[in-house]
Simulated scan of single mutants.
Amino acid sequence: MKEIGEIKEVKGIEEIRKHIGIHQINLAGTNKELELQDAMPIFIFDYLSMSKPLRTRLAIHTCELSGNKFGSLDMIWVDGYDKILKEDLSSLENDSNFWFWDSNGLIPFAYIGKGAEKGPFSEHEGVLFLDATNNFRFEENHTGFEDMPIVLFHVEKDNEKLVPIADNFKALKIVKNKTDRQLSEQIKQEGNALFGEGDFEAAAEKFYEAIQADYTNPNPYNNLGMISQATRDYWDRGETFFQLSFLVDPKYTDGMRGYSGFPASRGDFEGAIKIMTKCVEIEKSALNYAILSRFYLDSGDIENAKKFYKEGAQIDPNHPKLLEVEESLEEHSF
């Protein structure tokens, strides 16, 4: 498995990644135990590309919605299996995170049903997983995600089971929303106006609507992340949507800049530097160099902080963020 910054490239992941966003799914008749509808909203995301702390919080969030206490031994049974997936769920150490990928080979990739249109960390009716529990390994003899069967955990049913839904991702009946970038941008601008007025909840609703109009438009994902920065709230949602913005558009540097502050806030300057290094490779701007220089400075690497400050100063020596870094470097030298 190849890792670039926080983004893990796994064979077959592009099949899911190109579906990221809000769509419709037909699950009617896929499982006799559940009365599933033929038109349900689905929000597809890329769990393996989320930061590790965020994956843990996604696990806790899903536990809470399903009525399970995180770490409880009285957990989920899987159809066709004769044992609980994890015998010891009481520790968060060594990646023992619920029934998720890190421990047991079940990879969440979508929320479905009412509320799913708001993506991760919203209320929803169910979670879809790729089932890699049969000792599946990403080795050369496997084709990737397309090999994995799909299972569903239905939150609102009194039925604590993961039930089979499809043989693989391609077998799912996903109806992609049509993309209308002009409409998406128009709705986003309406959200921006509400954002400027301080009506952040109404702005968020507009940004969700803008994603529905064009799930490939990185701007509304990014703007949902910006709400978390403006309000100092909704941190999990903000971190998720910043990452989604540059997953739907790998060259979207606004989202990279927005996201880089999250690992830095946890003291993970190495992670923040990886993201901003990638950002600088895409866009050599004074702002990007200033942020990268700041992360090196905060990590104690003065040599690289000076190096990238100078790179940025060659582009725009008077950029406000660079001037802040310059002042910090002078104070450090003094």
Results as ranks from 00 to 15, higher is better:
31 N>T: 04
139 E>H: 10
69 K>P: 10
138 F>G: 05
95 D>S: 13
104 N>P: 07
58 L>Y: 05
137 R>V: 11
60 I>D: 01
31 N>C: 04
36 L>Y: 02
146 E>W: 07
142 H>G: 12
32 K>H: 13
55 R>M: 12
20 I>Q: 06
83 K>N: 12
18 K>R: 10
54 L>Q: 02
43 F>D: 07
24 Q>R: 14
99 W>G: 11
94 N>R: 14
109 F>D: 05
25 I>V: 10
147 D>P: 08
132 A>Y: 09
42 I>R: 00
90 S>N: 02
60 I>K: 05
117 E>L: 00
27 L>K: 02
23 H>F: 00
58 L>D: 04
89 L>D: 12
93 E>Y: 14
73 L>E: 15
64 E>V: 08
17 R>L: 09
82 D>M: 11
69 K>L: 14
124 H>G: 05
75 M>D: 15
109 F>C: 03
30 T>E: 09
86 K>Y: 12
30 T>V: 15
144 G>E: 01
80 G>E: 05
122 S>D: 01
18 K>A: 05
94 N>W: 14
120 P>E: 05
19 H>L: 12
119 G>E: 00
68 N>T: 09
97 N>E: 15
75 M>T: 15
92 L>I: 14
149 P>N: 04
112 I>F: 01
26 N>C: 00
52 K>N: 11
85 L>I: 14
104 N>L: 07
142 H>V: 12
34 L>A: 06
90 S>H: 08
114 K>H: 02
20 I>R: 03
37 Q>Y: 08
108 P>W: 02
86 K>M: 12
74 D>E: 15
103 S>D: 13
98 F>G: 08
99 W>R: 09
149 P>F: 03
50 M>E: 13
110 A>F: 02
143 T>R: 13
25 I>N: 01
19 H>R: 10
30 T>H: 07
15 E>L: 08
98 F>P: 06
60 I>W: 04
